[in-house]
Simulated assay, not measured.
Amino acid sequence: MRGRIIKESIDLFDKKGFSKTSIQDIVDTIGVTKGTFYYYFKSKQELLRDIHLNYIKELLKEQEIILRDEYISFEEKMQKLIYLIIKNIRVHGKSARVFNREVRHLDEEQVKSVNVYRKEFRFNLQKLIEEGIEKGEFREHLRSDIVIFGILGMVNRSYNWYKPDGEVTEEELVSIYMDLILNGIKSEPNSK
């Protein structure tokens, strides 16, 4: 039942917004009582927090598998990690969109509990950049922290506009992002 409450709430929060969705709306959609809701969650805010915790913890598990792969380059790991985020738009896009739009409704402690995992995800990527620099795969003198903020800013915003069933495939989007990250937008000297 907990999973069903989360799933239906994500849909409602995505359609109506967090503020305009009541606990009564949630239980009416599922066909249960408020008592059932309160058995699993103390508040709507706790539900919102748990929506994102479920999402980010799953991403961290998948991130760890990619990072531990000793047989692929740092560039390939970065590509797989960007693909991980983009492919999750199909399955978890609503939950990421809801959280990013509605995080302002959480109290400070709830935000802190989520940010622990978000920071872990970011620091893992930052470490990947630093190791890639150390091994000569990425340019020296990069500020790994700023590079990762830039990459995550670009990739995470995809939840707001990217349509997995649209004209650009997940693989094409990842390829565009990787080209932009690795090569930028400046034309090559002999390409004019």
Rank of each mutant, 00 (worst) to 15 (best):
M1Y: 10
I6R: 05
I6D: 04
I6P: 15
I6L: 09
K7A: 09
S9E: 14
I10K: 03
L12I: 09
L12H: 08
L12F: 09
D14S: 15
K15G: 03
F18D: 13
F18W: 06
T21G: 09
V27L: 10
D28I: 13
T29I: 08
I30K: 15
I30V: 13
K34Q: 11
F37K: 13
Y38D: 08
F41T: 10
K44R: 10
Q45W: 02
E46Q: 08
L48N: 06
D50Y: 04
H52P: 14
L53D: 00
Y55R: 12
I56A: 14
K57C: 15
E58Y: 12
E58Q: 13
K61V: 15
E62W: 01
Q63T: 05
I66E: 01
I66G: 02
L67Q: 06
E70K: 14
I72E: 02
I72G: 01
S73C: 01
S73W: 00
S73P: 04
F74Y: 14
E75D: 07
K77W: 04
M78I: 12
I85C: 10
N88A: 11
N88T: 04
N88F: 07
R90L: 08
G93Y: 00
S95P: 03
S95D: 07
V98I: 11
V98Y: 09
F99H: 10
F99G: 05
N100L: 14
R101W: 02
V103L: 12
H105W: 07
E109W: 08
K112S: 10
N115C: 10
N115E: 14
Y117N: 14
K119A: 10
R122K: 12
F123A: 12
N124Y: 06
K127S: 13
L128R: 00
I129Q: 12
E131W: 01
E131C: 11
G132V: 03
G132E: 09
I133D: 13
K135W: 12
G136P: 07
F138S: 08
F138G: 07
F138Q: 03
R139K: 12
H141I: 15
D145Q: 15
D145S: 15
G150S: 15
I151E: 05
M154P: 07
M154H: 06
N156H: 07
Y159N: 14
Y162N: 09
K163L: 11
D165I: 09
D165Q: 06
G166L: 11
E167K: 08
V168Y: 01
E170M: 02
E171K: 04
E172Q: 13
V174N: 09
S175V: 04
I176H: 10
Y177Q: 05
M178F: 06
D179C: 06
L180M: 12
N183C: 06
G184S: 09
I185E: 00
I185A: 02
E188R: 02
E188H: 07
P189T: 02
S191G: 06
K192N: 09
